[in-house]
Design a protein around this nucleic acid. Sequence first.
DNA 1: TTGTACGCGTTATCAT
DNA 2: ATGATAACGCGTACAA
Lengths: 327, 327
Amino acid sequence: MASMQQIADALGITRTHVARALSGRGYVRRSLKQKILRVARQMNYRPNRSAVALATQRTMTIGLFMDLDPSYFGAFSPSFRIVLCLSDALERWGYSLKMMPPHATGAEGIDGAICVFKSGLRHWAKVRRPSLPAVAILRHDAGSVAEAERLEMPWAAYDRRPGMSALAALCARKGLRRVGLLSFEMPRDNPGLAEIRAALAQHGLSLPDTDIFEIQRCPETLIAQMVELAPRLRALDLCVLRSNQVAVPFYQAAHLVGLRIPADLSLAGYDNAYYTDRFDPPVSSLQFSIEALCAQAAEAVTSAIAGEDFDRQIRIEAEFVDRGSIR
Amino acid sequence: MASMQQIADALGITRTHVARALSGRGYVRRSLKQKILRVARQMNYRPNRSAVALATQRTMTIGLFMDLDPSYFGAFSPSFRIVLCLSDALERWGYSLKMMPPHATGAEGIDGAICVFKSGLRHWAKVRRPSLPAVAILRHDAGSVAEAERLEMPWAAYDRRPGMSALAALCARKGLRRVGLLSFEMPRDNPGLAEIRAALAQHGLSLPDTDIFEIQRCPETLIAQMVELAPRLRALDLCVLRSNQVAVPFYQAAHLVGLRIPADLSLAGYDNAYYTDRFDPPVSSLQFSIEALCAQAAEAVTSAIAGEDFDRQIRIEAEFVDRGSIR
DNA sequence: TTGTACGCGTTATCAT
DNA sequence: ATGATAACGCGTACAA
């Protein structure tokens, strides 16, 4: 790992040239610039975070606003993956990530913010300073996007529609005509529900209200509720599991009542297949790259801080991955 | 928020005095030192992390080595709490926390390390540089402590024995004579098992092998396994749940077979009552302060970096908290 | 006991 | 187009 001075010494030039070549600001003749960049790479140049921070009067720290629900349901969330991916991605830009505690009442000591999902957005809304660049990471739906737009925030969101379309196409191809949905209680205008129905409709399929099975958010009775629903679910050709939070207990309930997957019932997850990935079979599900989402969000916020242009509306498309839970 | 220079200006002295007074190194006359400290407090002095880092050639970053098991079982762990608490605690010492990715093959860019549990210790062992201060956060048992000592690392551990003693005393007092244990498969020389037996023995109670009920680590069959065990568990006066990972599914299984808690069976958790804290009733369990544990570990590692003396063997005692799951 | 001066690595400004 | 230099806030060696 080399500093600017070491590169300058190696080339027999002044530090100033190196700084200009690496920052892209100021004038360096093209040939020299190329040489500097090459040597910088060879010598493994990394900017010194502390020095940059001191000179620019920044902290080189990005605050993470994310709700860390400590309940049973919160356990089944990709929070940790998001933290790791963001931390990794930001590091490449010379920034570090700081988790803002739930009780944080200010946004001190950070150069920018990343807000995860609606809950993170709400936390941020309470403490935000308008001058502080921030981006949102969202599930792509009308409500979330509207909330980000209202705060005039750029966002990066994953869009389930392409994956859901692929799933609907698969159903049509395989002749799985009766499709149901297992979900926690949700309002009837839930955007996910509308998405699922739209995708199915594209392929001549429908999801009647009577095939939507809702579960109460009560951890103790979770399995019992699903056991009770089993006979009715058995009548479906395919059951869509709304999230990991229903997928895991559903597998457990299915085993309990001898419902074989996929022999007796085909399953598809409407979310990344966290936590069921070691099940047999893992749930076939929508899938999008958290790495990509976080990398894009990180690039957006760092660009915003640097005053550079960037894409204020980033979409990551989910695909559908068949892992064997569909007959 | 004021800098040293601002304090010096306010007092009409040089910055050097302020630096010496605040650091405690070097000579300042007592009266002046008092005044400086008072004014520093009034003006809300905070050291500038970047400046400290640049001047001392440190990164002011502590690496966190912790296994983030992405499986079903990993979901029921206090990892997130530990990250938040450590991050909070380190911030008070001017340090920030960096999660070291599982694939990290080096320990670059950090001034010290905190390793969580045996798995974190093993990761650290692969990448450690002996010159880099590190502390371990452990469950207090012979194996973990031995591993830390072998690496010549200071450690902070929580000790369940006081809490377990209190639980055993409660059992004796209430006449709960037949005590069983529900646990994942474990070797017979498991240190936790020995601890539980020792505590019970103190109060004239025993835990025969026949009252140890072991569960296979298979998420799909988890509930079914427990349902099957229910009749035998019912015969106990009190069932000790080895961890949250069995506690949550056990509550679900109990509801399924109509086993009422505590009317039909008294329960006690051998771990903090994460995830069951919103159950009815929450499990009465051992309890220790993660905040305290993390704060101590943070202080230890920062002291080690500063070359100061510190306690190399820190114990946090668990107590027992009755939340209503014992008749 | 007190003050001066330099260094840390980078950014940014001002002369050449 | 190029190079020299001040600033950023703090630690510290050394001189007074």
